[in-house]
């Protein structure tokens, strides 16, 4: 058997770690930057402050981890949603390329943006 070559265990591990960090971190960030600040419920943090927070290597490392794992979480779930929800398993190859390829591209972009802050 070629089970040791199968990428499924690794992809599932990325999916579930991504699901966990997304559940823990995304709600508060989305709530603040997507809803609270735009609606003026709290005064928007100054650019200088956020720049300083973002300049901390630890912040950038955490944000990169969040982006990368969350993207792999999406890739895995979306792949199976297309397989089962829309019965598109016959297009498995392009779907896999779209999903995981998209996640890899996203990781590269995230790394590029976070390194050049």
């Amino acid at each position: 058997m070629n089970r040791r070559r199968s990428p499924e265990p690794l992809l599932w591990m990325l999916f579930s770690s991504g699901g966990m960090v997304a559940a823990l971190m995304v709600p508060i960030l989305l709530f603040l930057f997507g809803i609270v600040f735009p609606l003026g419920l709290l005064s928007t943090p100054s650019h200088a402050h956020l720049y300083a927070v973002l300049h901390n290597p630890l912040t950038r490392l955490v944000l990169f981890g969040l982006c990368a794992l969350a993207l792999f979480h999406w890739a895995h779930r979306f792949r199976y949603t297309l397989y089962d929800g829309l019965q598109l398993k016959r297009y498995a190859v392009p779907i896999v390329v779209l999903c995981y390829g998209g996640a890899v591209v996203g990781c590269v972009i995230a790394a590029g943006l976070l390194l050049t802050v």
Binding site: H47, C67, A70, G85, G106, I109, L113, L114
Partner: peptide
Amino acid sequence: RELSSVFVAWFVVFLLLLVNAISDGA
């Protein structure tokens, strides 16, 4: 529940745009 992943991915895009904006200046 499975479609929630699309919005998780959307959040990553939104976050990266924010990061980009902050690093580009005030």
